[in-house]
Design a binder for these strands. Structure first.
Lengths: 237, 237
DNA sequence: ATGGAATTTGACATATATGTCAGTTTCTTG
DNA sequence: CAAGAAACTGACATATATGTCAAATTCCAT
């Protein structure tokens, strides 16, 4: 049999090599698909990177598209996880902070998967099937209900739940997808753990409390805590 | 001569066909590069789309990379424009609202260019040369100084200027780059002008005033000016 | 109209992609 | 250890990519 059961669950004994090699292939593939997209990535490169002969990939996956869609399935599972922080029985402030932190942590620790997914969307989500989109919408909708509940109870200002999530999602996503740009803007060659912490603080702080001081431009003087540690070398020009 | 002067400024008479065809090529190219990336896009497709024989593209551009970098130059010019709203002599609230609106308007009217640029960053900015990055950083830095000035004058809460801009940039960018996802989340097949208006309102509203009601979950009523405290969660440590 | 410049074009050289397959090697188990 | 299943592999068929070039055609100032 050329393509024995795509599912190797339930056969824990015989499927050792299989599981290991499929994982190796997917790991190499997600990097190249993230970097070059579906059309740009070459199976030859993927094979080279995971040190398997190219023909061998076809023993585990039926085609290039097969590898790609397997990755989508895998990555989409991560979509929901951070959302679990958004629960009606939690304090909105705490929940939102936790969500931002979780999302940024994912961006920090899984930048490749994050970029792979972004790349798929960017190109028109040709391989993201209807059931995936429906799933994502359902997940978002259920969390939107939580936001509405918070608003109803007067715990949150009356924001549009969907645009609210888009704001959070995009801001956190940025640090993975455009990490190169973000580090360039901040003036470093790579984003540090501290940068991600600053990002979390800025996003949470701004979304929760806004950035506007009293409309009266009165005296401020004392700036007890203007993030003194973040004196970026921006004036260097 | 095979590639007569890449610059056709200064010769307004002779360069009519040249200008028209170069524009046609770039217009087709930006779409395909946005959809498939540098490696994935095929010159044959570009030629087909702009109804020119493929060999003819080589009369106007020296190579595939030549077309790509020409596009980068063209798109990067748009990067600065929205930033011009951020001026120290303006009211921060007005300026930020104007910036968000301008940026979203660009996303709405130039989604393809926006995605093309995002795609280039996503792939590691291989063609975004050092001088481009320096330029972008300088532009951001000069606007960061405006934010610092606003903070100094007590017109703005003490936010980190760079992360602040990243928040605004990513949120607005989202509606172009991930338009497919955004419309799916909102539950429409396409984003309308009204959706963009809602997005602008949500982003501006949240960034300026936050979404948290008084910490006391009780009475909401009059909220002349909440956000007395900018206690940014000190995840930074 | 005419001659030289600008533009267009089909065919070609070279390289490399995906996917197939028969045959070989390695593993596993009775 | 023997035999069948699983895993591997080099070679091949087919398709298509980029870039080149000489020759044909069109444009335009004189």
């Amino acid at each position: 049999m050329r393509h024995p059961a795509e599912d190797d669950v339930g056969k824990p004994l015989e499927a050792r090599i299989r599981a290991r090699n499929k994982a190796k292939i997917l790991k190499a593939a997600v990097q190249l698909f993230a970097a070059k997209g579906f059309d740009g990535a070459r199976l030859g490169e993927i094979a080279e990177q995971c040190e398997l002969p190219r023909a061998n990939l076809y023993y585990y996956f039926s085609s290039k598209e097969g590898i790609y869609t397997a990755l989508i399935e895998q990555v989409i599972a991560g979509w929901d996880r951070a959302f679990e922080h958004i629960r009606a029985d939690r304090d909105p402030r705490e929940a939102i902070e936790a969500y931002v932190r979780a999302k940024l942590e994912y961006s920090r620790t899984h930048p490749v998967e994050s970029r792979f997914f972004a790349s798929e969307i960017l190109r028109g989500a040709k391989f993201l099937m209807r059931r995936h989109r429906r799933h994502m919408r359902e997940v978002t909708d259920s969390r939107a209900d939580v936001v509405r509940e918070w608003i109803r109870r007067g715990r949150l200002a009356p924001v549009d739940p969907h645009h609210f999530f888009i704001l959070l999602w995009s801001a956190t996503q940025f640090y993975a997808d455009y990490g190169i740009l973000a580090s360039g803007i901040i003036g470093k060659s790579r984003l540090t753990r501290q940068d991600f912490a600053n990002a979390a603080a800025t996003i949470s702080g701004m979304v929760l409390d806004g950035c506007c001081t009293a409309n009266s431009p009165a005296i401020v003087e004392e700036q007890p805590n203007r993030l003194g540690s973040h004196d970026f070398p921006s004036t260097a020009n």
